[in-house]
Computed example of a mutant assay.
Amino acid sequence: MKNQFWSKNPLPPYFGKPTGRNGMKGIEDQRFNFEPSVTHITEETRSPAEKAIFRNWQKKQTSESREMINLACQIGKRGHKQIEYYFNGDSTPCPVILKRHWEHLEPVLNNIHNIRLLKGYVFHHYEGFAGQVRCVGRLNNYPESVIEFKFSNSVKPTVYPEQKLQVAAYIAALNRQYGQPYGVNINHGIIITVTPYEVDITLIESQELMEYWEKWKLRVGQFWSQQRNIA
């Protein structure tokens, strides 16, 4: 295949177009079928208390803190792009703002192998959601997994429940989309969180993953119920 990181049996990428429809943010496939994104569903189904906390936080932002948030967003976008370059054998140099993160992340990337998909769109038309998987591959001797990368400027890496919900959703969509024809039956997830100071690897075993999948289905059901009420 492309290089030592890649599997000899990669998955064919599906077409996806990020777009909006009926006030929802989501992804459209090649047949113009639209599904709301995992991120949009997550945001819309937060509790009233969580939404209030977020609104209050937004009000308290100063120009300096907004600059910090923008910088963090840039680091996240460039970080994911740099991972793509790295796994595809592209020698594009690491941006200066990413160097401290990259020093911690690169040794971990070198232990990822048998990559079958990188930045691929996935759709779960039965449940009604879509998303974009960052990586499907293996880390060391861990089973084939959906691997998500999170960039943070915090001192200590933190993994949030919503991130595990995201991974569970992506795995379910991936298994449904590719399934038996491609030998895809993933039941493990990995979240790699990197800060300027360290990197954290969170492994999600099959039992925990199933628990988050059940929670995610409830969130999706809540979302579509809210949409019917709006209509």
Rank of each mutant, 00 (worst) to 15 (best):
M68L: 10
H188N: 15
W6P: 08
K77A: 12
S152V: 06
V133Y: 01
H124D: 15
R228L: 08
L117D: 06
H104V: 00
E148A: 09
R134Q: 15
F129M: 10
Q177L: 12
A52K: 11
P48D: 05
S65G: 00
R100T: 15
M24F: 01
S47A: 04
Q227H: 00
I191S: 13
G76D: 10
V122S: 02
M68G: 03
Q58W: 04
R78P: 01
N153G: 08
Y121D: 07
H40G: 02
D90H: 02
I230V: 03
G76Q: 06
S65W: 00
Y121N: 11
L174T: 13
M1N: 10
T62E: 11
E28Q: 14
G16N: 14
T39F: 06
L209W: 07
D29V: 07
D200Y: 04
N187W: 06
N153L: 14
R176A: 15
T193M: 05
P181F: 03
E198P: 00
P157K: 09
V122Q: 04
K51C: 02
N153D: 14
N141E: 14
V96Y: 05
W102G: 07
K60V: 00
Q163D: 15
L118D: 06
Y86C: 07
T42H: 12
S7V: 05
S154H: 07
P48H: 02
T62F: 01
L71D: 11
N187A: 06
I201E: 11
S152W: 07
T195N: 12
W213M: 05
G221A: 03
G26V: 12
F34R: 10
N9L: 08
F129E: 13
M210K: 09
V146E: 15
G23V: 13
Q61P: 00
G183N: 15
N22K: 13
A173N: 12
K156P: 01
S145Q: 09
S37K: 02
P48R: 03
K59A: 11
V167P: 03
N175L: 12
I171T: 13
K2V: 07
D90E: 10
V108A: 06
H124P: 01
Q222P: 01
I69E: 15
R228H: 02
E43P: 01
L117E: 09
K99Y: 02
E208H: 00
I69R: 13
S152R: 09
P48M: 04
C94G: 04
K59Y: 07
G89P: 10
N153W: 01
T42C: 09
E208S: 05
Y142H: 13
Y14W: 08
R219H: 08
S91H: 07
G89T: 06
S65C: 00
T158G: 06
V136T: 08
T195C: 10
K77H: 07
Q180T: 13
R55C: 01
E162V: 04
I27L: 12
L218E: 14
R31V: 11
L218K: 08
